[in-house]
Design a protein around this nucleic acid. Structure first.
Lengths: 368, 368
DNA sequence: CTGAAAGCGCTAACAC
DNA sequence: GTGTTAGCGCTTTCAG
């Protein structure tokens, strides 16, 4: 039982040789008579023959597969990304295999190596930590990579890597600007603890919008999550919740919150409610990413849209060209424009009195 | 460039033969002198040698990889499941490769075949459509499978397959019972259009709870989503929203809604709000699954907890034993018990007057 | 147009 | 203890 027909069986049944079958399999039907093609196809059909990927790969040294590294598919944003990458890859005849890096460089490297051993020659690194040095060796050995959400500087031994990202600085700017336009002056930044470049850039955009409006940047309004939760994105919302609590517990709490991403925003909203506040009446919240769920939440989340399908498509396209050798030019950085999607979590701030009551509630709680 | 050292290079550098290196690689260091081990390890280290997976696989016919088929990782529940399966698999030395089936039997089959060609001998089919006949052939060829969320009957040519699932009937029962205990009498069922067994079972549990309470089952209170949206789970929440709208638009709308799963519940909640209703004041909603997000939503979702880590662990365990030949016994069906998690989307129903106003709003809208 | 044959890198007998 | 060797299933020159 469990007998797999091999190419030889097909050849025998079709009354021809292995190489002829192989030629047909590899898109060279012109090298044989139509009737031979016919016979071979029948034999394949009858036997239910399927070529062994391993054998083919061993021979050609190539697997039509790309690897995708994300922090964790359990984060809806990366789930959506994984799906988008799959669509783009399959359109080009590639499969995708996925690894959850948990933002751990050691895990990322391990995955990349496993992928490489598997015959995979291209991987997309999604939301990696800042430094990409752990990929240098593999890239030197012929692995093509494109970074998602991270523009490499090529400094300090870091490999220069193609990249595809949204303009994160602008995303942070748009989110913050929206709140400023609404009349907010005390705007908190709910940041994860993740050491990623997109985080830094989004934060910069926040700073820029503030500066433009003449609002001084107050470090106490920028809150990281609890590093003890880890950076693995399984707890993105928890991070957001913890960070928002820090902000909301301030003597002079912010009236508006920018979250590093939508999952953090979900957590931030939870924090506001933990303290008995209402959104957007007491506190406005804006996310970044526009995950599929954003519009279904209550209140529907105002956020900055990241064009995930376009980004994925571009990343896969770039990678396939590198793998195929079609593109051996200099490092490319593709940047997409984000846009704001106003929904229901933002509104003009209320009077200070209302705000203070929120801050007080906290005090009472910790005193009780 | 891009030169990969092979086992022969290691042997040469270590001044030994390939087979000795291979023996070490395959956990047989006892067959050689300690100093030989030492030299080989140094050589491997110096060369940065890593064995080719393809070659090994070709030789042994086996890949330490399991395949996982889910409708779509962009659904948070399946994202969480994918991660849980990965954890369980890696603990046993297996990698996992993932396929988004979109609940399409043709895609499922295609993936399973690709996996098989890849040397994968075990796959977990998550939330597959009802009939598993499309896997029969592959199973006949030696592919081990375990179904997640589906208990095979083995009838009508369907392959008898191991399975791991939550007691879905009980889940539906618990959800419904909760609403009944709260005083609800008109309870709608927000069902997807997905032709899965878990859907059928959950619905049965709903019917059972109703029957027990002496509440007649009214078919008009069971709403499927819009089949045009497809069953691919990318739109689970949209399905829920559409189905809930149908229910809420009834002349005598339900006061409580059971949703097929949490994503449907999210959509159902959105539908209630679309109509100006409040949760749980106007309508109570209970989900099933308890996705990580459930507790973070507003209001926090009352739902039935599905022990996803335990289920994944059990599925992987079963599969690995089958692959390893450790277990060749009869088909096994492992069933876990669900439990209700009461959060904030459920409450006692209000008077009929309040209810009717919701129904009326609809009428006004369609008239306007 | 078709076939024979040489490996791809590795494992596991089986000899020494 | 260690080395030799025959393939795993396929692709691809290179002869016929």
């Amino acid at each position: 039982m469990a007998y797999r027909p091999r190419i030889r069986d097909v050849a025998t049944l079709a009354g021809t040789s292995v190489s002829t079958v192989s030629n047909l399999l590899n898109g060279r039907p012109d090298r044989m008579r139509p009737e031979t093609v016919q016979r071979i196809e029948e034999a394949i059909e009858r036997l239910g023959y399927r070529p062994s990927w391993a054998a083919r790969q061993l021979k050609t040294g190539f697997a039509p597969v790309i690897g995708l590294l994300v922090p964790s598919v359990s984060n809806p944003f990366h789930g959506a990304m994984a799906r988008a990458v799959e669509v783009a890859a399959q359109a080009r005849g590639f499969q995708v295999v996925l690894g959850n890096s948990l933002r751990d460089p050691a895990r990322e490297r391990q995955y990349a190596e496993d992928f490489f051993d598997f015959g995979i020659r291209g991987v997309i690194a999604g939301s990696s930590p800042f430094d990409l040095g752990h990929f240098s060796e593999l890239m030197g050995r012929g692995l093509s990579m494109v970074a998602f959400d991270l523009v490499t500087t090529g400094e300090g031994g870091e490999p220069a890597m193609d990249s595809v990202s949204m303009d994160n600085r602008r995303a942070g700017y748009l989110a913050t600007r929206h709140l400023i336009d609404l009349g907010h002056r005390r705007i908190g930044y709910v940041s994860g603890a993740t050491p990623t470049m997109s985080r830094r850039d989004r934060l910069e955009g926040y700073g820029q919008a503030l500066a433009e409006a003449g609002i001084p940047l107050e470090p106490e309004l920028i809150a990281a999550g609890d590093a003890a939760l880890g950076y693995d994105d399984t707890h993105a919302a928890e991070h957001g919740r913890a960070a928002a609590h820090n902000l909301l517990g301030l003597a002079a709490p912010p009236t508006g919150l920018i979250a590093l991403n939508d999952m953090h925003a979900v957590g931030a909203c939870a924090a506001v409610r933990d303290r008995g506040g209402a959104i957007p009446e007491d506190v406005s919240v804006v996310g970044i990413d526009d995950i599929p769920l954003a519009g279904l939440l209550y209140p529907a989340l105002t956020t900055v849209h990241q064009p995930i399908e376009k980004l994925s498509e571009a990343a896969v396209d770039l990678l396939c060209k590198r793998i195929g050798g079609t593109d051996s030019g200099p490092v490319r950085h593709i940047v997409f424009d984000p846009h704001l999607v106003v929904r229901a979590t933002t509104a003009a701030p209320e009077g200070r009195g209302r705000q203070r009551s929120l801050g007080r509630a906290t005090t009472e709680r910790s005193a009780g």
